[in-house]
């Protein structure tokens, strides 16, 4: 029994709502624990009574018709009274936690603006010029404000260890407060069905100490590094020639497109295609060869590049640190 419980315990300590890493998630986890105790109590009462009733009142051949009890006012009062008290208690607690976790944003400038796209996340940091995708860096021990919207359909931000989810809707702005406790990498995913590649719209939050975070932000505000290697230089030329810049931005170059992820520091992200695979030259090569093969439905067209061009593009893009 204890073995089973410890095992269950270890399961829920891995990436889960019971492993809160922000004060918001912490509030929710505590509330959830109270709820589980109450729910377990009710389930225990119902199953306990049921088992007793089954054992005690199972018919035996030759039973006379039992007493035809129609009601019992005391039992009825308890039936309504006890659940009502429990419900009232949880309601008050709920309102408290809601105010703690999700106060209005007011006019405060958000720390990050996250925009959902089919099927990736755009994150821009107001006042800094830094724009990134899918891997979102945040400072610890600071109450940060995230602002959400969507460029197409409804998406939903969810990083279980960091707490509440929030829908991202076209034409509306929503927000979320986060006070992260510990530096670390937190996995999440889009949690509102958003079309063909909903499964591969994963988020990664990288929580850093304030100084590291500021260094990261400072670096990501810079324009892209000029390529040095001749192959990479050729890649840059192809990038501009092949209209890649109509959709993608590489700051410091002519590429200023807005509908695909910002590639200025692409190679500094550990995963590509919203958590689908690690950022490696091989994966990048496969992707450029035939996007529909790698992530069917993705909005990147197939360009039918020559092998040489792909090698040059890979050299260029994987140098964008």
């Amino acid at each position: 029994m204890i073995l089973v419980l410890t095992h269950i315990n270890t399961i829920f300590l891995s990436l889960s709502i019971f492993q809160p890493a922000s004060s918001q998630a912490d509030h929710i986890a505590t509330l959830t624990n109270y709820f589980i105790v109450a729910a377990a109590f009710i389930l225990l009462v119902v199953t306990g009574l049921l088992i007793y009733v089954i054992l005690r009142f199972k018919a035996k051949p030759g039973d006379a018709e039992p007493r035809q009890v129609r009601r019992n006012k005391k039992v009825e009062a308890v039936m309504i009274g006890v659940p009502f008290l429990m419900v009232a208690g949880f309601f008050i607690y709920t309102i408290n936690v809601m105010q703690e976790v999700h106060p209005p944003a007011g006019n405060q400038v958000p720390d990050v603006i996250v925009t959902g796209h089919q099927w990736w996340w755009e994150a821009s940091y107001p006042g800094t010029g830094a724009v990134t995708a899918n891997e979102i860096h945040l400072p610890v021990h600071k109450k940060v404000l995230l602002q959400f919207s969507s460029s197409d359909v409804i998406h939903d931000w969810w990083v279980p260890e960091l707490g509440p989810k929030m829908d991202m809707m076209p034409g509306r702005k929503t927000h979320l407060w986060l006070t992260i406790n510990e530096p670390g990498v937190y996995e999440g995913a889009c949690s509102e069905f958003c079309g063909e590649q909903h499964a591969w719209m994963r988020i990664r939050v990288v929580a850093q100490r304030q100084d590291e975070y500021e260094r990261w932000l400072q670096q990501k505000s810079q324009p892209a590094q000029e390529p040095q290697h001749p192959l990479a230089l050729k890649g840059e030329a192809i990038f501009n020639l092949a209209t890649c810049g109509n959709c993608h931005t590489i700051r410091g170059t002519a590429a200023q497109g807005q509908s695909g992820p910002d590639l200025t520091h692409f190679a500094s992200r550990t995963e590509m295609l919203a958590g689908m695979m690690p950022t490696t030259e091989d994966n990048l090569r496969d992707w450029l060869t035939d996007p529909q093969q790698v992530k069917p439905g993705a909005h990147m067209p197939r360009f039918i590049f020559e092998q040489d061009s792909i090698n040059a593009l890979v050299a260029y893009i994987s140098g964008l640190k």
């Binding site: 709502i17 998630a25 509030h27 929710i28 509330l31 959830t32 709820f35 729910a39 009710i42 389930l43 119902v46 199953t47 949880f90 607690y93 709920t94 936690v97 809601m98 976790v101 999700h102 939903d156 969810w158 279980p160 707490g163 509440p164 989810k165 929030m166 949690s191 509102e192 069905f193």
Partner: peptide, 21 residues
């Protein structure tokens, strides 16, 4: 009863924020 109790957890808004969808 199991389905009803897990249903109540969605009425508790913060738990819903974690577990909906």
């Amino acid at each position: 009863t199991i389905g009803g109790l897990s249903g109540v957890s969605f009425a508790i808004v913060p738990i819903d924020w974690q577990l909906t969808d």
